[in-house]
Structure formats: structure tokens, C-alpha cells
Lab assay of single mutants.
Amino acid sequence: VKVFRALYTFEPRTPDELYFEEGDIIYITDMSDTNWWKGTSKGRTGLIPSNYVAEQ
């Protein structure tokens, strides 16, 4: 598990995607895809765009 911080707010387009706000901490559990990672924030899990976060 790696810890990342959201650089921007992300509004999901599908139920599989995770909503998060700029500054949120996201725990990444799967980075197997280059563009979409699986992450958890505020008790919810979903896909996030990798270019919206920076490693802490």
C-alpha cells in the first residue's frame, strides 16, 4: 500500500470510480494499470486517475 495526496478534486463518471477532493489522502492498493489505480479514501474504495495524485 502506498500513500498519495489528491492534487485535484475528482468527480466519478462511473460507479467504479472514487470521488475525492483536493488534499485528500488516498491509500493505493493496485497500480497494475498505468492510468487508473485502485485506492481507498474516507472508507470508500474505487478507481482513481493516476495523474490526479502525488506520492507522499
Results as ranks from 00 to 15, higher is better:
residue 23 G to R: 03
residue 7 L to W: 03
residue 23 G to F: 04
residue 11 E to L: 15
residue 36 W to L: 06
residue 13 R to C: 12
residue 36 W to K: 03
residue 1 V to K: 11
residue 47 L to H: 04
residue 47 L to V: 07
residue 23 G to Q: 03
residue 1 V to Y: 14
residue 5 R to H: 08
residue 20 F to Y: 02
residue 46 G to E: 01
residue 54 A to Y: 12
residue 38 K to E: 08
residue 37 W to I: 02
residue 35 N to F: 15
residue 56 Q to H: 14
residue 51 N to D: 12
residue 44 R to V: 11
residue 15 P to V: 11
residue 12 P to A: 11
residue 53 V to Y: 02
residue 31 M to T: 10
residue 40 T to G: 06
residue 10 F to G: 01
residue 47 L to S: 05
residue 36 W to C: 07
residue 8 Y to N: 06
residue 25 I to N: 03
residue 11 E to H: 15
residue 2 K to T: 09
residue 25 I to G: 01
residue 39 G to K: 01
residue 37 W to D: 00
residue 25 I to M: 09
residue 54 A to T: 15
residue 14 T to V: 08
residue 14 T to Q: 10
residue 50 S to F: 06
residue 47 L to T: 06
residue 15 P to F: 08
residue 20 F to V: 10
residue 36 W to P: 00
residue 28 I to G: 00
residue 24 D to M: 05
residue 41 S to V: 15
residue 51 N to A: 13
residue 54 A to D: 08
residue 12 P to Q: 04
residue 30 D to E: 10
residue 25 I to A: 06
residue 46 G to P: 00
residue 18 L to D: 01
residue 7 L to D: 01
residue 32 S to M: 08
residue 23 G to E: 03
residue 15 P to E: 13
residue 40 T to L: 09
residue 48 I to P: 02
residue 19 Y to T: 06
residue 29 T to D: 08
residue 47 L to A: 05
residue 51 N to S: 14
residue 11 E to W: 15
residue 39 G to P: 00
residue 23 G to Y: 04
residue 42 K to M: 10
residue 47 L to N: 06
residue 23 G to C: 07
residue 5 R to K: 15
residue 18 L to C: 02
residue 36 W to F: 08
residue 51 N to I: 09
residue 32 S to P: 07
residue 3 V to H: 07
residue 2 K to G: 09
residue 8 Y to F: 12
residue 29 T to I: 13
residue 14 T to W: 11
residue 54 A to V: 15
residue 3 V to M: 12
residue 20 F to Q: 00
residue 36 W to H: 03
residue 35 N to S: 12
residue 9 T to S: 12
residue 39 G to H: 02
residue 25 I to V: 11
residue 15 P to H: 10
residue 39 G to L: 02
residue 25 I to W: 09
residue 18 L to V: 05
residue 23 G to A: 03
residue 52 Y to F: 13
residue 5 R to N: 04
residue 1 V to G: 13
residue 13 R to M: 11
residue 36 W to G: 01
residue 30 D to L: 04
residue 47 L to C: 08
residue 34 T to Y: 10
residue 3 V to S: 07
residue 16 D to M: 11
residue 53 V to E: 02
residue 13 R to W: 05
residue 37 W to H: 02
residue 7 L to N: 03
residue 49 P to C: 10
residue 12 P to D: 02
residue 22 E to R: 13
residue 21 E to K: 10
residue 46 G to D: 00
residue 6 A to E: 00
residue 14 T to I: 08
residue 37 W to K: 01
residue 56 Q to L: 15
residue 42 K to A: 12
residue 19 Y to E: 10
residue 49 P to R: 07
residue 50 S to V: 10
residue 45 T to V: 12
residue 53 V to Q: 01
residue 22 E to Q: 13
residue 18 L to Y: 01
residue 7 L to P: 01
residue 3 V to G: 06
residue 13 R to E: 09
residue 52 Y to E: 02
residue 45 T to A: 11
residue 7 L to R: 06
residue 6 A to T: 01
residue 31 M to I: 06
residue 38 K to C: 15
residue 35 N to V: 14
residue 41 S to F: 12
residue 6 A to N: 01
residue 23 G to D: 05
residue 26 I to F: 03
residue 51 N to G: 12
residue 13 R to F: 07
residue 30 D to Y: 04
residue 14 T to H: 14
residue 15 P to W: 07
residue 48 I to M: 03
residue 29 T to V: 11
residue 4 F to Q: 00
residue 54 A to H: 10
residue 2 K to R: 15
residue 14 T to Y: 12
residue 4 F to N: 00
residue 30 D to G: 05
residue 18 L to E: 01
residue 24 D to V: 04
residue 10 F to V: 07
residue 28 I to R: 00
residue 24 D to S: 05
residue 48 I to K: 01
residue 26 I to N: 00
residue 53 V to D: 02
residue 53 V to G: 03
residue 1 V to S: 12
residue 21 E to V: 10
residue 55 E to S: 09
residue 43 G to Q: 04
residue 42 K to N: 15
residue 29 T to W: 15
residue 55 E to Q: 12
residue 29 T to F: 15
residue 7 L to Q: 04
residue 43 G to L: 04
residue 21 E to L: 09
residue 20 F to N: 01
residue 21 E to A: 09
residue 56 Q to F: 15
residue 52 Y to T: 03
residue 5 R to D: 01
residue 19 Y to H: 09
residue 6 A to W: 03
residue 2 K to N: 07
residue 48 I to C: 05
residue 33 D to S: 08
residue 8 Y to W: 11
residue 22 E to V: 14
residue 17 E to R: 05
residue 16 D to V: 08
residue 30 D to K: 03
residue 26 I to E: 00
residue 29 T to Y: 15
residue 39 G to D: 01
residue 13 R to Q: 13
residue 54 A to I: 15
residue 3 V to P: 08
residue 17 E to C: 09
residue 36 W to N: 03
residue 52 Y to V: 07
residue 35 N to M: 14
residue 36 W to E: 01
residue 23 G to W: 05
residue 50 S to I: 06
residue 37 W to V: 02
residue 50 S to K: 10
residue 6 A to G: 05
residue 12 P to K: 03
residue 11 E to I: 15
residue 54 A to M: 14
residue 55 E to G: 07
residue 27 Y to N: 06
residue 54 A to W: 10
residue 40 T to K: 09
residue 1 V to E: 11
residue 21 E to N: 08
residue 48 I to E: 01
residue 55 E to K: 09
residue 56 Q to K: 10
residue 54 A to S: 13
residue 13 R to D: 08
residue 29 T to N: 08
residue 1 V to M: 13
residue 25 I to P: 04
residue 27 Y to I: 13
residue 10 F to D: 00
residue 41 S to A: 12
residue 46 G to C: 04
residue 51 N to C: 15
residue 4 F to M: 11
residue 55 E to W: 11
residue 28 I to L: 04
residue 33 D to G: 09
residue 34 T to V: 14
residue 37 W to A: 00
residue 14 T to A: 11
residue 8 Y to T: 07
residue 5 R to P: 00
residue 6 A to K: 01
residue 10 F to Y: 15
residue 19 Y to R: 13
residue 36 W to M: 08
residue 30 D to P: 03
residue 3 V to F: 10
residue 49 P to T: 09
residue 9 T to R: 11
residue 56 Q to T: 14
residue 23 G to V: 02
residue 56 Q to I: 15
residue 55 E to V: 12
residue 1 V to F: 14
residue 55 E to T: 08
residue 25 I to R: 04
residue 39 G to C: 01
residue 6 A to S: 03
residue 56 Q to S: 13
residue 21 E to Q: 12
residue 41 S to I: 14
residue 44 R to N: 09
residue 37 W to C: 03
residue 27 Y to C: 13
residue 19 Y to A: 14
residue 10 F to E: 00
residue 50 S to T: 07
residue 1 V to I: 13
residue 53 V to A: 03
residue 17 E to T: 04
residue 5 R to S: 05
residue 24 D to C: 06
residue 32 S to E: 09
residue 4 F to L: 04
residue 28 I to H: 00
residue 38 K to R: 14
residue 19 Y to W: 10
residue 15 P to L: 11
residue 24 D to Q: 08
residue 36 W to Y: 07
residue 36 W to D: 01
residue 4 F to D: 00
residue 42 K to P: 01
residue 7 L to H: 02
residue 26 I to T: 07
residue 37 W to R: 01
residue 43 G to M: 04
residue 2 K to H: 11
residue 53 V to W: 03
residue 41 S to W: 05
residue 39 G to A: 09
residue 31 M to H: 06
residue 46 G to L: 02
residue 46 G to H: 02
residue 22 E to Y: 08
residue 39 G to N: 02
residue 20 F to D: 00
residue 44 R to H: 09
residue 20 F to E: 00
residue 55 E to R: 09
residue 29 T to L: 14
residue 42 K to T: 06
residue 4 F to R: 02
residue 6 A to H: 01
residue 19 Y to Q: 11
residue 36 W to T: 05
residue 40 T to N: 11
residue 53 V to R: 01
residue 24 D to G: 02
residue 9 T to E: 04
residue 4 F to W: 09
residue 51 N to V: 09
residue 39 G to Y: 02
residue 11 E to C: 15
residue 9 T to G: 08
residue 46 G to T: 01
residue 7 L to V: 07
residue 21 E to H: 09
residue 23 G to I: 03
residue 16 D to I: 08
residue 9 T to Y: 05
residue 1 V to Q: 11
residue 29 T to Q: 09
residue 9 T to V: 04
residue 44 R to Y: 06
residue 52 Y to N: 02
residue 52 Y to W: 07
residue 25 I to C: 09
residue 13 R to S: 13
residue 52 Y to C: 12
residue 38 K to F: 15
residue 22 E to H: 07
residue 15 P to G: 10
residue 25 I to E: 08
residue 49 P to F: 05
residue 20 F to R: 01
residue 24 D to I: 04
residue 23 G to N: 07
residue 50 S to Y: 06
residue 24 D to Y: 04
residue 26 I to A: 00
residue 11 E to K: 13
residue 8 Y to R: 14
residue 32 S to K: 08
residue 18 L to G: 00
residue 50 S to M: 07
residue 49 P to I: 03
residue 3 V to Y: 10
residue 45 T to I: 10
residue 35 N to L: 15
residue 48 I to T: 02
residue 1 V to R: 11
residue 34 T to K: 15
residue 20 F to I: 11
residue 43 G to W: 04
residue 41 S to C: 15
residue 44 R to M: 11
residue 20 F to L: 07
residue 5 R to V: 15
residue 17 E to S: 05
residue 41 S to T: 14
